[in-house]
Amino acid sequence: MFALASNSQDWFSRKSEVPKVEKLAVVLDAAPPGHEEIRDKPKRRALAPELTPKAVIAAEARPKETVTTPVTKHPLATQPAPPAPTAEEWAFAGNYPLKNSKGYRYTWGKQVRSMMGTAVEGPDSGQVRFRIEIAPDGTLAKLETLWTTSSVAEQLARQAIGRIPPLPPTPTGKPLTFERTISFTPFATDWPPIYDDDCLPDPPVFTNPFAWDGKSPQVVHVEPEPIKKLDPQALEECRKQLPQNSIEAEIAREQRLQNQWGSSKLGK
């Protein structure tokens, strides 16, 4: 026991020698039957060649391809000529003297437009404004073009005026002078007039007090005369001869008011 005790320190410090085992890894490369010769080889990715400054400048200067969307042509708008005034309409126009023969002036314009044909959207459509003078017997005494937006429209209107059938005498038995715009477009319609206020006097015409042509002597501007009130009995007699407005005229008036003033309900 003393011998064991004396050698215990060496015994505990002694380590058993363990044989070292080297690690061995085995890799198997199994190929499908019949394809033993195929082996996966690493694929090399082709690298883009570096651009030289000249190549970069040429690439930037190359025009870029633009994709254009084909434009689809819409059908042109058209508006056929209105029917010519009837004999009843001319009979009314020849006997209505109020407002510088208002009925006669409208019927004359409708007669001209009915003889101009169909208006087609395009450069040939447009408007022309004339100053006309009708002799007391209904014949044309003077025709002057004030302005026009289409030479074709003016030519067609002048041809129609030259072929107008004989017209009735003017309502007042005097020469009738007025201005009239003929619209030869597919987007404009010459609506019938409203006769409700034809018995009321015309409002005063505004004149510029500073207007001067530079040639004629300057005169002091005269204030317009105040509007005279009609006698109630004369006003009642005048209203008896007013014709009834057509449905087309009422629709046109409501549309003009709507376009001018709008509606308070639409903004809410």
Results as ranks from 00 to 15, higher is better:
residue 76 L to E: 10
residue 81 A to E: 00
residue 36 E to H: 07
residue 109 G to H: 00
residue 93 A to N: 05
residue 161 I to F: 05
residue 259 N to V: 03
residue 248 E to D: 10
residue 164 I to R: 04
residue 223 E to P: 03
residue 65 E to W: 13
residue 59 A to F: 14
residue 128 V to F: 02
residue 181 T to W: 01
residue 246 S to M: 05
residue 119 A to P: 00
residue 144 E to F: 02
residue 105 R to V: 03
residue 157 A to S: 13
residue 266 L to E: 11
residue 22 E to Q: 09
residue 148 T to C: 08
residue 24 L to F: 10
residue 50 E to S: 13
residue 209 P to Q: 04
residue 183 S to N: 02
residue 246 S to A: 03
residue 116 M to N: 00
residue 1 M to E: 13
residue 62 R to S: 11
residue 86 T to D: 05
residue 58 A to P: 07
residue 134 I to D: 03
residue 63 P to T: 04
residue 228 K to S: 15
residue 195 Y to P: 01
residue 140 L to W: 05
residue 57 I to W: 12
residue 213 D to F: 08
residue 17 E to T: 15
residue 83 P to W: 04
residue 162 G to I: 04
residue 267 G to E: 15
residue 151 S to R: 09
residue 117 G to K: 03
residue 80 P to G: 07
residue 160 A to L: 01
residue 92 F to N: 07
residue 202 D to F: 06
residue 124 D to Q: 06
residue 241 Q to E: 13
residue 266 L to W: 09
residue 140 L to V: 15
residue 94 G to D: 15
residue 68 T to A: 11
residue 50 E to D: 14
residue 129 R to N: 05
residue 159 Q to V: 12
residue 55 A to M: 08
residue 25 A to E: 12
residue 34 G to H: 01
residue 258 Q to V: 05
residue 227 I to V: 15
residue 203 P to I: 03
residue 45 R to T: 09
residue 143 L to K: 14
residue 45 R to G: 07
